[in-house]
């Protein structure tokens, strides 16, 4: 592992936390203020009675909005823009949705198993018409398990950066450069967890999330290709271009 001074780790942690706060889409206070606003039964039924393709399109739009914030987050991480453009794209293609899944825990209410979506808190039944109950259940379970770790915003920021800077993604041109950045981020995360007197096991639990995140994203890709096989014209004409670039 690289030799890094404490100062450097502190500086990186500060940079990543600031980048996260500037690009987190919703402030914690806004989210907490809205938790009492869950969709009413007739609103849930309204989502359930939408045509499948309309709901898919709505979700693609929401995911794309969230991803745009993640792109901004990446750009502000020290070192990211110094990578070659191929690697910036490889990392975002593979990792931006994973960061959206991580960020989902900020907007998740464990008490009633709901997540902030389209203006209110929504349970999994809202997404029924998408026809991918497995993926939805897994995403909710993931958010719930992330919530149970009670990470601070700083820790969440560093974990998101650690995931985004995964050096084992396919097609990286300067793998060792990404590797160094990721190692530094991991050290900064470790340092932060120690500073907050969190046990060693938190880091182990976070590292275990890596494969869960990859599973979630590959299930998303599979679900999208199944949808596209039936509705190719809807995807082509109505899905956000960025979404198609990332997952097409």
């Amino acid at each position: 592992s690289p030799t890094v001074s404490m100062d450097e780790l502190e500086h990186l942690a500060q940079n990543i936390s600031k980048s996260h706060m500037e690009t987190c889409q919703y402030l914690q206070e806004e989210l907490q203020q809205s938790t009492w606003q869950t969709f009413l039964q007739d609103e849930v039924e309204c989502y359930q009675s939408k045509p499948k393709e309309v709901m898919w399109q709505l979700c693609a739009v929401k995911i794309t909005e969230a991803i745009q914030y993640v792109v901004e987050f990446a750009k502000r991480i020290d070192g990211f823009m110094e990578l070659c453009q191929n690697d910036q794209i490889v990392l975002l293609k593979a990792g931006s949705l994973e960061v959206v899944f991580i960020r989902m825990c900020r907007a998740f209410d464990t008490q009633n198993n709901t997540v902030y979506f389209d203006g209110k808190y929504a349970g999994p039944e809202v997404f029924k018409v998408l026809g991918c109950d497995d993926l939805i259940t897994s995403a909710y379970d993931f958010a719930k398990s992330m919530c149970s770790l009670h990470l601070s915003e700083d820790e969440l920021a560093l974990f998101s950066a650690f995931i985004l800077l995964s050096s084992d993604r396919s097609w990286l041109q300067e793998k060792s450069k990404v590797e160094k950045l990721q190692q530094k981020t991991q050290l900064a995360l470790q340092h932060m967890l120690q500073k907050h007197q969190r046990g060693e096991e938190i880091l182990t639990k976070l590292i275990c999330k890596v494969s869960t995140l990859r599973g979630l994203c590959s299930r998303h890709t599979e679900t999208l290709s199944a949808f596209r096989a039936v509705y190719p014209d809807i995807v082509r004409a109505h899905f956000p271009p960025l979404y198609k670039e990332l997952f097409g």
Binding site: K75, M81, I89, K93, L242
Partner: peptide, 14 residues
Amino acid sequence: KHKILHQLLQNSTS
């Protein structure tokens, strides 16, 4: 390929 992503990366951070 990746036209939008290129564009987003090139836009200066606001």
